[in-house]
Design a protein around this nucleic acid. Structure first.
Lengths: 178, 178
DNA sequence: GTGATCATGTAACAAGTTACATGATTCC
DNA sequence: GGAATCATGTAACTTGTTACATGATCAC
């Protein structure tokens, strides 16, 4: 139930076309809710049918033509209701941890190389987040919205730090093939 | 592509029936790869057809009767190949971070209560992991398999600590409705 | 006019969720 | 024999993934 709300949030921040949304789901929003353009177009169709968003620039039925959407009051209400709702943290599903556990029973030749590769990827992601933090959240700006967005970004930063810490420790502890 | 490998790992650790697997996916394995009994039965069927596992206690076709599976050599090989494979970390998809971002545009009455509720849930999960750590990984045991399984558990512990830290900070920073 | 890229979509499939159905066993 | 629970499964649906199709626009 999160994708439609991710799209509504993105459209509230700025009315956009499907492709523009896709690009934003490769950056900002996508850092904590990823989606492909196929998912986005499908969901835009559903949201439009449900009367939560509507296309601007009236009625362009043509295929290859840009179509911008904006959020209607019903969409805003649906989003508010979702934010206020109780929803338990979903259970963890992480392939790397799972592979580690599998390695405990079938052996793990080369898994340390994979760990180093992941470590590098997480370091890069962290550097990207830090750059965004410096660029978008200078100390002087401090509206409530900025503070919340900054909190979210720090969530991303902390998550990358978790992975870097865990993988580093794993590599130190890694059972050496003696 | 992870569920079949999660099941193969569980069956390598100990041959089991579908219901026993379901219970283990509510505990140990489930702490980093959750699955419902419907998913498990469906996947067991596929794995059996693919010749990666087989039912013990020959040929019980009856509906309500227990059916134990064990891993065949082909299944073990498939699992080894999967452990050795390169697979990028999947992109984050977290509803709580997303709701925070939505709150930045539509407002967030009551979101702090939800944060406190999540904080409590994560504290409980952390306590459970710590209890398991003390019970299952006393300092004297130190086979390679144990070390890997312990690493995985510490991953769970670190993840809970990340959440506890982040939510605590969020509550401190939370924009007060003044 | 043709090739790149912008832009919207379809189709088929895989994975995960929710609700329900049904037989076997055990305890009273 | 009735209730609880053990145990396996079906069906319908939603969400996410992968591969492909097609039209519009712009640079050359």
């Amino acid at each position: 139930m999160s994708l439609p709300h991710a799209i509504l949030t993105a459209l509230m921040e700025k009315p956009s076309s499907g492709l523009e949304l896709t690009r934003r789901f490769d950056r900002s929003i996508g850092y904590f809710w990823s989606a492909t353009h196929q998912q986005i177009y499908r969901e835009l169709g559903k949201l439009e049918q449900a009367g939560q968003i509507r296309a601007l620039e009236p009625a362009q039925p043509a295929r290859g033509q840009k179509k911008e959407y904006e959020v209607l009051p019903a969409g805003r209400e649906a989003l508010s209701a979702w934010v206020a709702r109780q929803e338990d943290p979903k259970q963890v599903r992480d392939p790397l941890l799972l592979r580690m556990r599998a390695a405990a029973v079938v052996g793990a030749p080369g898994l340390d190389a994979e760990l180093r590769r992941h470590l590098e990827l997480h370091r890069r992601q962290l550097a990207e987040y830090r750059a965004i933090e410096i660029r978008d959240f200078p100390p002087e700006r401090d509206t409530p919205g900025d503070r919340l967005r900054h909190l979210v970004l720090r969530g991303g930063i902390d998550l990358e730090n978790f992975w870097i810490g865990w993988i580093t420790r794993a590599l130190e502890d890694y059972p050496q093939p003696t």
